[in-house]
Write a protein that binds this DNA or RNA. Structure first.
Lengths: 252, 252
DNA sequence: CGAAATTTTGAGTTCACTCAAGGATGGTGG
DNA sequence: CCACCATCCTTGAGTGAACTCAAAATTTCG
């Protein structure tokens, strides 16, 4: 259940038994969702914090003339709206792309964890640092890579992240995006996404059947997308890090 | 000196006198820089934490074929490499765009503040949340806006942020970017940046002389760039926020 | 003052877009 | 179980925004 989060946070900070229990008990309830729903809207303060258990969501922004930009994908283990609770207002919306479930963590619960469990607070902070790192890579992706590279890069990222949380079967995984949604994620038109996917398939790098993808040639795909997984911090042990001791944080 | 940081962090959390003194004493020394230097490189762990006092730096990533993408601008009051200290490794490089100075905060000092001053830790966290919010807007900017809009948007952002830290004189401020650098920031070619700037000038929205810009028509420029300052959280008071009480965070 | 960097201009090219229509797919209800 | 509808994917042709290359004009700086 919340095992996902615990496992993930442990990447950053090894947690005590007590802390693990606190985390495990943090979930008030779970919430099932279908594709096309919105969890929070830009400008609102989220009522609670949502943790993805299953399925895929996205952070997105609506721009002029009906344009949309997806600015992040939220997979199992990701927190949807902690930033909104931190700042009192969401700078973006969160919507669902597939069916799935989220765990709901009441804000008092979160507040309590932050106050009483320094290592949890630290781990949550780091979780958000990784989120920011991914967003920076997206800027580079949309800003300076060709259409072909962008799509390859996106495939690599989703694949590696799903593998990391155990939501892939070997090199195959559910592809959570329609081509229109992929277009909104990498800043291309739907038609062009279609053509780039066809090219990747014809080159034998990937294989798609229905909503399932299989990466046939990981090195080839990573080369095609200039992908290096470093920015995902998937293997960040808690060792050898500078700011690596208990600390506190608070509000007035 | 570090007044900049104090003022900024106070946006988020009102600090006690003790905390302000701690912050004021956090700076070990200052470091002057010239354009074209690098503070930290991707992959490294920063030795210390740098706070911009004056001048402009950028976060950037180098991609294949000599391409470069600037993923953030660092202005007075911004922290350059806290994320690197948090994660033990930088996911990007930090370079200077102008001459200026940074304050150097030793990591033990930072560590001590995080351990002993919850509100400072919280404020630093929020500082990074705002950084992430800006990066998301950059994804939207490069992904879904026209060249004309991107340049207008960048001008608005830099102007508003410089105004917020008192580094603008009314509607005029130092423009810290060459056209090649602006191109790397918004994902365009140098030549096209030049043409878009000319267009903005000919439309009477801005005025440039040397490295100084004046915004002649704020509403017009914001309209041109689909700009809304919300994502900058410039006026985020500490009131009415959910996670707004002391908390702690730590490492194993 | 001269060298280097930056900005500007022009012309031709290309990558990705738009528009439009035809297939495929999948879910729903009869 | 099949028919239907909606959504999604695919294809083609023409267009356009932004790119590249190259060179001239300007500014900056030692």
């Amino acid at each position: 259940m919340t095992q996902l989060l615990i496992r993930k946070l442990q990447h950053f900070a090894s947690l005590s038994e007590t802390e693990k229990q606190v985390l495990a008990g943090a979930t008030a309830r779970t919430l099932a969702f279908r594709p096309g729903e919105d969890l929070v809207h830009e400008g609102e303060e989220p009522a609670e914090c949502h943790l993805v258990l299953d399925g895929v969501l996205c952070r997105y922004k609506l721009l002029g003339e009906g344009k949309r930009q997806i600015v992040a994908l939220l997979l199992a283990g990701d927190l949807c709206d902690l930033c909104g609770l931190m700042m009192g207002r969401m700078d973006h919306s969160v919507g669902t792309l597939s069916a799935g479930t989220v765990a709901v963590i009441p804000r008092q619960m979160l507040q309590g964890m932050l106050e009483r469990h320094p290592r949890i607070a630290r781990a949550l902070w780091q979780e958000m640092v990784v989120d920011a790192s991914i967003t920076r890579e997206w800027v580079a992706n949309t800003g300076r890579r060709s259409a072909y590279q962008r799509i390859a890069h996106l495939l690599c990222e989703v694949g590696r992240r799903l593998q990391a949380v155990g939501h892939a079967s070997g090199d195959a995984f559910e592809w959570p995006l329609t081509q229109a949604e992929a277009a909104d994620a990498v800043g291309l038109s739907t038609v062009h996404v279609n053509r780039m996917l066809q090219q990747l398939r014809s080159e034998g790098l990937i294989e798609m059947q229905g909503s399932a993808v299989r990466i046939l040639d990981w090195p080839g795909l990573e080369r095609a997308g200039e992908f290096s997984a470093d920015y995902l911090f998937l293997n960040a042990g808690s060792r050898n890090r500078t700011l690596d001791r208990p600390f506190h944080a608070s509000m007035p």
